[in-house]
Nucleic acid binder design. Structure first.
Lengths: 129, 129
DNA sequence: CGGTATCCTATGAGATACTG
DNA sequence: CAGTATCTCATAGGATACCG
C-alpha cells in the first residue's frame, strides 16, 4: 500500500476520506439520517417519509449506512416479523458537521443564486461580442 | 409558489440544498478548493497538484465552482496569456464546514473500518448457516 | 498553455416482477 | 412486509484528438 504522497501542511483529502464522505453524503443518506435521528423507523415508514426514493435506492442506502456502522438493522420478532432501522451512536456524531454544512448552504444560497445568474448572463452575451 | 411542505421541527433538506451540496462537494471540488485556498493557481498547476483528475473533469469542476461564485477565473494579459484561478470570499466561507466534516471522517474512520469488517464478516457466514 | 469536441464505457438509478 | 433480481436508460467520467 502506498503511503501518503507528501507530508503536506494542507488538508489531506485522502482517498479513504473521500470514499467515506461519498458513502455518507450521497443522494439519500441525508434524508434517511434525518428521519432516523428522530426515531427508529421501518422500511415502509422511510418510504412514506421520503416519497421520492425508490425501493432499490432506499435498500442500497440503508445497506451502505449499515455497513459503515451508521445505522442498525433490528429484526423484531413480532408477528409477522418486522424490521426496524435505528441510528447508532456513531451515526449521531454525524449530525453536527452535517448541520453546519446545511447552515452554510442556507446562509449563502442567495449569494450563490446571484452568482449563477451573473455567470449565465455573461455566458449569453459571450459569443455575440 | 409552494412554501415548505410542513413546519417540520426537523432539518429541511430541500432540493436546492442538495443540489448545491452536490455541486460543491463533488469528487474533485474538495481537492481544488484545498489548492486554491492556499494560493491562486493556473490550470496546469492544478493538474499537477491533483494528478488523478483528467482535463475534462478539472475543467468541469472549475466551471461549476466558478458558476456558483466559489472561484474566480482571471485572465492575465501576460505573454502569451495565462489563466489564473482564485478562491472568492464566498468560497472561503466553505472552509469551516468542510474542515469539520473532514475532522469527523478522521476521528471516526477507525470505528467505521471496524464496522465494515464486522459487516462483511457477518455477510460471509450468513448463507452457510 | 488552456482548453473544446467527440467517443466510449462504467456506474447509478428507475421500473417492473417475483420471493420468504 | 421487506426485500431480491433484472432490465433499461441516463449520466459521469476517462481517453483521445484537435483548436485559439
Amino acid at each position: 500500500m502506498p503511503d501518503t504522497i507528501a507530508a503536506s501542511h494542507r488538508l489531506d483529502i485522502s482517498a479513504p476520506h473521500r470514499e467515506l464522505l461519498d458513502q455518507v453524503l450521497d443522494k439519500w443518506s441525508l434524508q434517511v439520517l434525518n428521519e432516523l435521528c428522530e426515531a427508529p423507523a421501518r422500511f415502509s415508514e422511510l418510504r412514506r417519509a421520503i416519497p421520492a426514493v425508490t425501493q432499490k435506492s432506499l435498500t442500497a442506502t440503508l445497506r451502505r449506512l449499515e455497513r459503515n456502522g451508521i445505522v442498525d438493522r433490528i429484526v423484531l420478532r413480532t408477528r409477522p416479523l418486522a424490521i426496524e432501522y435505528r441510528i447508532t451512536p456513531l451515526g449521531k456524531t454525524l449530525r453536527p458537521p452535517i448541520d453546519e454544512l446545511l447552515a452554510w448552504a442556507d446562509t449563502h444560497m442567495p449569494a450563490i443564486e446571484r452568482a449563477r445568474v451573473r455567470f449565465d448572463e455573461e455566458a449569453e452575451g459571450e459569443d455575440v461580442t
